[in-house]
Design a protein around this nucleic acid. Structure first.
Lengths: 255, 255
DNA sequence: ATAAAGATGATCGAATATGATCGATACCAG
DNA sequence: CTGGTATCGATCATATTCGATCATCTTTAT
């Protein structure tokens, strides 16, 4: 049986990005009432697409999930909270660069209800924003470039170059690692795009769960002096980089 | 069975580009009354071309199965044959511009099994090629630009400008209309991108079903002298433009 | 030219989805 | 164990959409 109700589809799709969805969140997401969401949760559970628990629904545990969903569900609760905090920074009319990555993908589910212009290199993020949020006040831009296979990411020189055409209030970056030495990512295909986003944004916000702090990866993106705000978990081993953060006047937001 | 009612065709065409179509949107789109649209929705659902849900219709399959749906659906038989013929032109290593549109979207289902590089302004086409086909020999590029709401199309000056960075062996275009006066499309948001594709491709291939021949639309793309190959149906009223086609040495391929 | 067949648009009762409310129940802290 | 709080399921009123009917307009066949 297929879910035909667009609202229920939206809930299911959100559920594949988050690991669970609470009643309050679903209400905010759809604009529907408590009673309706409750009925939706019941319907989704009866269809076997979700499991109910007190206060919300989650993905069925034993189900075979897509690789993307699996990768995403790792630390997804934390990422979701970090993304929500990041989204709280935004004001009406802001222009936002959003990096491609599993962490920043969570932003799609919690953007504030204000007009925004968004430039991203993530096709999935763009598709999510376009298809589900009926938000005529959102302008969504994609960088050009080569589609990195099976990742939904636009990479390469044209991706980087197209960022040069824009200026933004914010750049939201997700990283593979963060040390006193700077920001790191696992592949160089996205690094140049991130550098341009950093160069052309007023404020650079790095979103990183605790596992990223103190870890490097192959490609260095930039030094910490480029970063304005770091949003991470309270459990992160920040002492490793604390001094350098202060030196570069990075504002740390702990969740 | 083919849908011959032009209004219903329009609805189906819109549906292949968007994900779902609501009653209200369909009324605005066609100018017809509520009752008529309802009857159309019923007819399309009974023909198996769409699924109804309260307030609108949607494609019968889930979006990840869209290529499958396209291949199997009856209404698109003609377009599918045209796309197959167009795909037959391609050779290993070719660089191909593919316009965003319902007709060219069918190309995703029938590309030959040779290495190709593809630049398109259609996010859906790119996603189909990336996710559905297991083709490591395909390089997929997207133009940048603004995402036209609920259409999966990249539009605007940056979309057009990014085409300038590439040169291709082929440009595959789908049009809203074709007369002796040239090619036409319904909206100007994609026209500039198409012009750049035409300018930077060695061979320009227009794919148009019979309903497009002899019909104009609001925006003129270019004259027929820019076209190298026209792929259309044998039933198309080609006599209207036959002379001009010969004059511009356009090669007509009839299916 | 006329009649038949079909498409279209308006209207109305029926079916369904939605939102608010209320008592019952599960969870948590002390 | 007990009281407080939040969530749940059920119920009812309302709003929206659906299907059917009928009148009007257009097309087609004779």
């Amino acid at each position: 049986m297929q879910i035909q109700n667009p609202r229920q589809r939206k809930l299911i799709d959100t559920l594949t990005v988050r690991r669970f969805l609470r009643l309050e969140e679903a209400i905010a997401l759809t604009g529907s009432s408590l009673a309706t969401i409750r009925r939706d949760f019941l319907a989704l559970a009866q269809a076997g697409l979700a499991q109910r628990f007190r206060g919300g629904i989650r993905l069925p545990q034993s189900d075979t999930m897509l690789p993307f969903a699996l990768r995403n569900s790792l630390y997804s609760e934390a990422k979701q909270r970090l993304a929500q905090r990041a989204a709280g920074l935004l004001r009406a009319g802001d222009v936002v660069f959003i990096d491609g990555g599993t962490t920043t993908a969570h932003l799609a589910t919690c953007l504030p209800a204000v007009p925004l212009r968004i430039l991203t290199s993530s096709v999935r993020l763009a598709a999510m924003l376009d298809e589900h949020c009926r938000r005529p006040d959102l302008d969504i831009y994609l960088t050009g470039g080569r589609l990195y296979p099976h990742s939904g990411l636009l990479v390469g020189p044209s991706a980087a170059a197209s960022v040069d055409e824009y200026r933004a209030h914010w750049a939201f970056l997700s990283v593979g690692g963060l040390t006193a030495d700077g920001l790191f990512n696992t592949t160089d295909s996205v690094v140049e795009t991130e550098r341009r986003m950093i160069a052309h944004a007023e404020k650079v916000v790095v979103i990183a769960d605790h596992s990223k702090i103190g870890r490097t990866a192959m490609c260095r993106v930039c030094g910490l002096e480029e970063v304005d705000i770091l949003i991470t978990e309270g459990t992160a081993p920040l002492e490793i980089v604390h001094e350098k953060l202060a030196e570069c006047s990075v504002q740390s937001i702990l969740i």
